[in-house]
Write a protein that binds this DNA or RNA. Structure first.
Lengths: 344, 344
DNA sequence: TTGAAAGCGCTAACAT
DNA sequence: ATGTTAGCGCTTTCAA
């Protein structure tokens, strides 16, 4: 079923059909009605490949999300959706798995749909100039930046929190309460990504407080899934009643850790405090509610879109925005107490 | 940058470039090398619209997910991803918002990318024949079926649990323990969708036990977000110590309800039991762990893909598969006790 | 092994 | 107001 078939059915030309389909004004009411009728009855849907091929450019902005099912992203995605719509553009969402190549996916998407620009959500931190050269449209990294890569500042845009700084701040919430044996739960200390950055923040906070880094307090989960986080936390914390606080680099890891602590017979926060970074919806409803540094999901999405739209419309250049987290108080931090519960 | 430009750079014809790009064997090693080199250095990426337009058909299967950020879907999506890859096809994922029209989106996607078939995840329960006529490829409804629509059985495929039956089973877990005042938390009793179905199961279970339906025990949240669920639960449960059990139609709602109960000073499960349906990852890590009827996410995805692939490859016709949930025990159900905590 | 050319479905001049 | 037609970038006969 093509535009040609519809034209035949109505005894009009393809251009008339095309005009109707694209809401051009210069079509008689009669023709319009006939075409619409035929379209309906034939269940005709235009072939977008053909459209995209011929249109000078679309009004589409692509959003490539890396990591299906990362709960932190959902709020950001919604904000981006809203912002793109509000600016008069169309969102083209594309999800890839955590191991996928968002640059390749983005390049392909942008070309195949003639996109005006790209928002990359949850990508890698180590792009090289050659890699981003794939992209021939403006793009902005959302929720991350090129910390481990070799991009010139003006070669890309980013909107993110300062992972190291915020991690440091989170750990400080613990040291301020007198905690000294503070465990960290992360994916890996050397992933050239978010874990590594937040790990650096953890070390920085320890140093500031004159605390020594204790390798046995580092729990590498090897992934972001909760089962792994639970196991790692349980293994690390078992028999370590001297550990009075845990910093988890993500809310989901923190929730799993709280469960592990509970199953170990340790109360949160009386026996062990927990803090993390993210601020996902679910972690506000745990008992006790998780204390976390909430990333500004809304603002993150909005700023990313604004930067992109400014570039698309010829205002403004590449920018880098560092957002601050907001402490979502919760109930998982308590002051350090020497004799909390028969600590060794 | 088009295939033509690459051809010029290498002084070969466009067909040669095309052959290289598509891994056709009949190209000299020399030409191949030159083309590849030019492609790399020009950062050339083929225009997919043009490709799709001309290719007889792709090897793509579309997955339209309605409801960005529904945590229940993530496991299903991964299973679908795996299954599609395993069958030698390519996944084209498309997410739309909860209010979106998955049929229109699917039709568009299928046409624009020449897809072989469609998996619809989380769609509406009330399709009409005219609506599905939009789709000119085989499709399967995943996690839902046409309970409130007018489709002929052989006009579509579905893989889902029996929502009413499973809800009934969930509530029975409560009545079996002697509970009589059982509240239900749902989106709406008349949404022609999952809430309504599970509500019917709730009523059925009450009837079976000779319990009367008490309208004041119905909490309509009006959405699936946790804040609404929390408010609804808190309002319904405040001052109702006679309510000794809650059935939530989704895990996320149950988690919010548990929090509300806790904030009301009521212990779970001693003062109030909680049960739900879904089995998302997070709800296994609450304290206490949520007792829920877990939907078989893996199997759901796999079966959906298998049915679709069978249709695509000419074996088999439309089918309807009803999967069973598995009780994920948890710790949120306790026997009814008359004098649990000063009940009125 | 390579090139020339047709044509996929559509839109937008350009005619009429 | 409507029709004719030239491509958009690509793949694929068909010839050479």
């Amino acid at each position: 079923m093509t535009i040609r078939d519809i034209a035949k059915r109505c005894s009009v030309s393809v251009s008339t059909v095309s005009r109707v389909l694209n809401n051009h004004p210069d079509v008689s009411a009669a023709s319009r009605a006939r075409v619409l009728e035929a379209v309906r009855e034939a269940h005709y849907v235009p072939n977008n490949s053909a459209r995209d091929l011929v249109r000078p450019q679309s009004d589409g902005i692509g959003l490539v999300v890396r990591g299906v099912g990362n709960p932190f992203f959902t709020g950001v995605i919604q904000a981006i959706e809203r912002a793109i719509g509000g600016a008069g553009y169309n969102l083209v969402l594309h999800q890839i798995r955590s191991e996928g190549d968002e640059l390749r996916a983005g390049a392909e998407l942008a070309r195949s749909r003639r996109l005006l620009g790209l928002v990359l959500l949850g990508g890698r931190f180590d792009y090289t100039p050659e890699q981003v050269a794939l992209l021939d449209v403006p793009f902005v990294c959302c929720s991350y930046t090129n910390s481990f890569g070799s991009l010139a500042k003006d070669a890309y845009s980013s909107v993110t929190i300062d992972d190291q700084r915020e991690a440091c701040r989170a750990v400080r919430l613990l040291t301020e309460q007198g905690h000294q044996r503070i465990a960290i739960l992360l994916d890996s200390t050397q992933d050239s990504s978010i874990s590594q950055l937040r790990y650096m923040g953890y070390r920085q906070a320890l140093e500031e407080s004159g605390l020594l880094l204790d390798k046995s307090l580092i729990g590498e989960t090897g992934s972001f899934d909760m089962a792994a986080a639970y196991e790692t936390a349980a293994r690390l914390l078992a028999g370590r009643r001297d550990v009075t606080a845990v910093f988890a680099i993500a809310d989901s890891i923190a929730v799993a850790a709280m469960k592990a602590l509970h199953d170990l017979g340790r109360r949160v926060p009386e026996d062990c405090s927990v803090v993390s970074i993210d601020g996902i919806e679910m972690s506000a409803y745990t008992v006790p509610a998780l204390t976390t540094l909430a990333q500004p999901q809304e603002e993150m999405g909005e700023r990313a879109v604004r930067i992109l739209v400014d570039m698309i419309e010829g205002r403004g250049r590449n920018q880098h925005v560092l957002l601050k987290t907001a402490l979502r108080p919760g109930e998982t931090i308590a002051p350090y107490q020497v004799f909390a519960s028969g600590r060794m």
